[in-house]
Design a protein around this nucleic acid. Structure first.
Ligand code: SF4
Ligand code: SF4
Lengths: 148, 148
DNA sequence: TTAATTACAGATTATTTTGTCTTTAATTGA
DNA sequence: TCAATTAAAGACAAAATAATCTGTAATTAA
């Protein structure tokens, strides 16, 4: 079973969301994030490293180092995170997995699926971290008390 | 990078679509299908075996044996194929991959995503093989001449 | 200056998914 | 009956993905 995003990407979304609810000038270590989100530490840091390359998050080495959002949450669109981690391939691919299908002979699914795909893309480009901040805050707050 | 469906499932869709464009009383061997769709033979037969369990396709062993659609194309909904191969988990899962999220405190994505997911589900339940037959026919016909 | 802490980079391992191979049982035509 | 053909079943191999580990360089506090 697969989903739209890879696990890596889901994790990245969570981690960045977590960064967004913290004060802007605070450095969060991978360890802190992993502890709070209950996710593998090294995986976190690897993913965040990737995101530093694209300038979405910043990092500082050393004793008080850690990660932080490099931009204002309102400047970070979800699609940017997806793109960095997974790429945008999903949004181009055929549902049926047919090779070499050209859209001049589209099957009935093509239009419907294409539309949904575009909607998903639109959703991810429209939403910024700022819009998710509030509910993410509650959500991550709850996380500690969740059994699963 | 992952997509909505697993490769197995894509392949199943293609194989079943292929069966649907053949005369009802014709047995198609896994080898024939694999040859025509240019896909691994054993994978095909494995997937079709799965689909025989759910009664979507039928099979016959022996010299003139092979696979065939057990129902009329208009009776086979795409979702049934997806369900047998991948299950319906995708349509229940959270985009962000948060564990233990309850819908009483939905993040802004939840509704949007939920809607898209439902649309996808609806699309797959509404479409039957019959509706895809015609264009699949052309599509598979072209397949042989495609470079990739 | 030194010890501690942290991101960083890359190797390594584990797990899952995908694909192949081998063997068996059923069916048919010769 | 017998040889050929095929699905079925499941072991096996390869590849992709996820997760861990190890060592290094940067930074800071003492
Ligand atoms: S026309 Fe159908 S088969 Fe071709 S790319 Fe679109 S969805 Fe896929
Ligand atoms: S509310 Fe948000 S985090 Fe929770 S299940 Fe829905 S999409 Fe996922």
């Amino acid at each position: 079973m697969t989903v739209i995003f890879s696990k890596k990407c889901e994790l990245a979304l969570q981690a960045v969301l977590f960064l967004s609810i913290k004060p802007k000038d605070e450095f969060l270590s991978a360890r802190d994030i992993s502890k709070e989100l209950q996710l593998p530490k090294e995986f976190i840091s690897k993913v965040l490293q990737k995101l530093t390359e694209t300038g979405i998050v910043g990092s500082k080495k050393g004793k008080t180092g850690g990660f932080f959002l490099a931009k204002d949450p309102s400047e970070i669109r979800l699609i940017q995170i997806v793109e960095t981690i997974d790429g945008l391939g999903v949004f181009e691919k055929c549902v049926l997995g047919f090779p070499g299908c050209s859209p001049d002979n589209p099957c009935p699914l093509h239009n419907k699926w294409g539309h949904l795909r575009d909607e998903a893309f639109k959703m991810l480009t429209e939403f910024t971290l700022a819009e998710l901040k509030d509910s993410a805050e509650k959500k991550i707050g709850n996380l500690k008390f969740d059994i699963l």
